[in-house]
Design a protein around this nucleic acid. Structure first.
Lengths: 340, 340
DNA sequence: TTGAAAGCGCTAACAA
DNA sequence: TTGTTAGCGCTTTCAA
């Protein structure tokens, strides 16, 4: 009754290469070759092996293969918050491309917590060929450390020496400021997102510089995290600072602001203008939010391409720095400054 | 220079159990025990082993462990479309719970395609301990087949004999119909979602029955898939059918409808009422959509609990059928029927 | 073109 | 309490 006693035991456990070998009257090595390097075998052998594999319902065991080759056929994808609408389109694009390249993907949700991010990367590293790390909140030092263990591509995080894809919101944000200035707004607020976010830093600076250049004043308002509620709660501060328009770190905050304004009877855009960022919520909700395109899906695709390219070539193209330009998408939540 | 030649080679490759064993002056088995069953070892031995493991920066290789034990420490999560706002909160909840239970998670995006779903499950099955399959579009037969290979829990798909978590939108949808009837609407439309969706079938039937019971007429409008654009395009049909209110398959469609109505100058809710489903977009966007709560996160959590419970107990609780009740959340997009 | 055999890093009887 | 040994299922030299 021992599993090794007779071939009838194969009925319960799934068939292995040995079973196929026995069935086809060849060695396990030959089965392996028939499946991975058929050109090195006589066609009729390959045929016979594939035939019996088919009959037995044999499926290659990826874990055994991985142990033997050191290659896993898996990618890791780590994001700070999968529930943030910025990420799903990116994840979707990544998963699709990874799949086409023959990889399965692990998803890690870091919960905006650098420590959890670190832990996730640690436990995933040993079963993936490469990692895409999006909007990391970890220190540069820690990121470098992980990048040494496994090929790693960053999204929206700018660490010199590591391959990275950056959605350059500067262009779009500058356009947003110009758009508002052109509409007569003299005082613009910027509603901040997560403080450790590279994107937030970039957007804040761009608002500041552009407004300065155009001679408009700017107020910085803190939300500190990206959420609808945070945006809603920021409205009193927004109104108090004297601005007549706000550029929010992202669409989620912008929607919160819309609600907060509505609750206070402030009409949009006639009394107050609102601009979002990322064009993700904006594209699938009403009202049509004026926003800065973020090209999340493209960024994801580019990151996976960089990663699989690097995995295939064995030549570490380490310092790739891909910038994706953005632009303003004017929709319905911006209008002329009040009293003009 | 062969890897086995001298221990100096350990500098390049990551340390194995053998390295730790050598360093601590014990056997590999002892290292293994120190890490997984420390209670079976003398405390000082455990200490010594952990110490040297620490020094060497040793991390257990999960793939080798999996090959040896047949347990992977991985779960698979397959959804039809990760970009559909219904899923991210669910995925997030699942990932969090899985992580706490010591599992990493593979994410599969089936793209609303049964064939892709099948393929994904096939390739993932060999490296996971269990599977959560959400809103499957596959045939019951195929689902059963996969459930035989690996422990599998369904979400929002009702297959007898398999453990499943169902968000029972009947309650909430019935309330929505009653709510609208109470507001004087005599003709209500239901905007359909994906035809293979269990949830859609359930919602459609509930609308029909409840409206019948209350003596209201119903029109069925097809959108066939869940997207903002589909909702928007459905507006002409919606207006043409003579209804004064719509219940949409989900929030995404509802938002599309809102935009379509706005484009035609139809005011919400004074001229037309809109109800969504899922309360996912609704909770983080403006305007505040009247919707049916979907408890996606809870459903995800329940599914993972069912799965890990089953994995731990080794007793197959096969026919669990968990229903999560829903209810209507009245917000700002429904109002009295026009002309009343 | 094919087979034999060693080994990937770990676990788990079985002994001691 | 600890070590020895035999795999887990696959790939990959090396020989034939």
């Amino acid at each position: 009754m021992a599993a090794s006693e007779s071939s009838r035991a194969a009925l319960v456990r799934s068939p292995t290469m040995g079973d196929v070998a026995a069935g086809a009257g060849v060695s396990r090595a030959t089965v392996s070759r028939a499946l991975s390097r058929p050109e090195r075998l006589r066609p009729e052998t390959v045929e016979r092996v594939k035939q019996t594999a088919q009959e037995l319902g044999y499926v290659l065991n990826p874990v055994a293969k991985a142990l033997s080759t050191g290659r896993f056929g898996n990618l890791a994808l780590v994001v700070p918050d999968i529930a943030n609408p910025f990420f799903p389109p990116m994840i979707r694009a990544m998963e699709g491309l990874a799949d086409r390249a023959g990889f399965s993907v692990f998803l890690g949700n870091a919960d905006e917590d650098p420590a959890r991010e670190h832990k996730l990367l640690g436990q995933l590293a040993k079963q993936v060929d490469g990692i895409v790390l999006a909007s990391s909140r970890m220190t540069e030092e820690l990121i470098r450390e992980h990048a040494e263990r496994r090929p790693l591509v960053l999204v929206n995080r700018d660490v010199a020496g590591l391959p990275r894809v950056l959605v350059d919101s500067a262009g779009g944000v500058a356009q947003a400021v110009e758009h508002l200035a052109g509409l007569g707004h003299r005082h613009i607020a910027y509603l901040n997102g997560p403080s450790r976010s590279w994107s937030n830093t970039q957007r804040r600076r761009t608002v500041q510089r552009t407004a300065e250049r155009l001679g408009r004043s700017v107020s910085m308002v803190a939300a500190r995290l990206s959420s609808y509620e945070a945006g809603r709660r920021a409205v009193p501060a927004l109104l108090a600072c004297g601005a007549s328009a706000v550029i929010a770190f992202d669409d989620l905050l912008a929607h919160g602001v819309l609600t907060g304004l509505a609750e206070r009877g402030v009409a949009v855009p006639s009394a107050f203008s609102v601009v979002g960022c990322d064009d993700v919520l904006a594209a699938q909700t009403h009202p049509q939010l004026t926003t800065v395109s973020a090209r999340a899906a493209e960024a994801g695709r580019a990151a996976v391409e960089l990663l699989t390219g690097r995995l295939a070539s064995a030549v570490a193209i380490s310092d790739a720095r891909l910038m994706l330009e953005t632009s303003l998408v004017v929709r319905a939540t911006t209008g002329p400054a009040p009293g003009r």
